[in-house]
């Protein structure tokens, strides 16, 4: 497989601790590079265990209005792939333990060049990739080369991924499985905890990988509910919306932008950490 990445190490350590991971999603460069870097640097202390960074794209077809808007804010302020990798390097200079996953769509990677992207991402300190529009049917494009380059390739499983489909989705998946808890786009609906836990249990019957759950998680209580069954809780739109709410009339970051995001992360981390799980034997 892809060896021991920071993702593998982090999930193993949390299993020993007996708790789930808080996985935070933010778009790289939202609302601008400097603010984004300051937020990302503050995430581990606020309680984030895994950092997902969105690579902005003009046409994020699986994302809801909040993340679409965050992508456009970042792009409007000059974010591009080179700067996203720079942001990872800048973060890594102060933190060599927290896993970083880049998440986005294939076209910006394809245009950057797959080989060049994998080499630069690995060198910058990226641990894993989530590329929304690359299903297993397109594994030869990026997934196989990414695994060979020592990066995790994290796949989304959804409520439409039945037991027949699941093995296909899980093949070549590494790091963790990202379970999309509701049908639909990011940030729209709240997940039903009982059915989420059922789905997580179903996935776990097929794989030893950790399962993180996302889509629609916005409050500490929900995060705690999901942390009971899953190995990780992903929060994205709620954080991105917090950035939006903190901007001034000219869409510039306000004095509270960084602290508002980190405060919410701390609350969510409190929710996740309130649930004790049986530690690994």
């Amino acid at each position: 497989m892809s060896g021991d990445t920071r993702i593998d190490q982090r999930f193993a350590a949390l299993k020993d601790e007996g708790r789930a991971a808080l996985v935070t999603f933010l778009t790289a460069g939202d609302p601008d590079y400097a603010t984004s870097l300051e937020i990302v640097k503050g995430l581990p202390a606020a309680g984030a265990d895994v950092i997902e960074l969105g690579m902005p794209f003009t046409d994020p077809m699986a994302d809801g209005p909040a993340i679409q808007a965050s992508s456009l804010r970042a792009l409007a302020n000059g974010q591009n792939m080179i700067k996203t990798l720079q942001l990872v390097r800048d973060f890594r200079s102060g933190d060599d333990a927290t896993p970083i996953v880049l998440m986005g769509y294939y076209n910006p990677i394809y245009i950057y060049g797959v080989e060049r992207f994998l080499a630069d991402a690995k060198a910058a300190g990226v641990d894993g990739l989530i590329v929304v529009d690359l299903p297993p049917e397109e594994d030869s494009e990026l997934c196989i080369p990414a695994l060979a380059a020592g990066l995790n390739f994290i796949r989304l499983a959804t409520p439409t991924t039945d037991d027949h489909r699941l093995p296909t989705v899980l093949s070549n998946t590494s790091g963790f499985v990202y379970y999309v808890s509701v049908l639909g786009i990011t940030g729209t609906k709240a997940p039903d905890i009982a059915s989420v836990n059922q789905a997580v249990a179903r996935i776990k019957r097929h794989t030893p990988l950790p399962v993180a759950v996302g889509f629609g998680v916005r409050a500490a209580e929900q995060a705690a509910g999901i942390a009971g069954g899953a190995d990780g809780v992903v929060v994205g739109s709620a954080l991105v919306n917090t950035i939006l709410d903190s901007l001034d009339a000219d869409a510039k970051p306000g004095p509270s932008t960084v602290s508002a995001v980190l405060d919410l992360v701390a609350q969510l981390a409190g929710g996740v950490r309130s649930v004790e799980k049986p530690a690994a034997e």
């Binding site: 077809m61 529009d133 299903p135 049917e137 397109e138 796949r155 039945d162 489909r165």
Partner: peptide, 20 residues
Amino acid sequence: EHGRYGIHGGRFVAETLMPL
């Protein structure tokens, strides 16, 4: 069988849509 015309075409969609 992969929906390709030379290098073009394919099925670049989110997993939710793949079964459909």
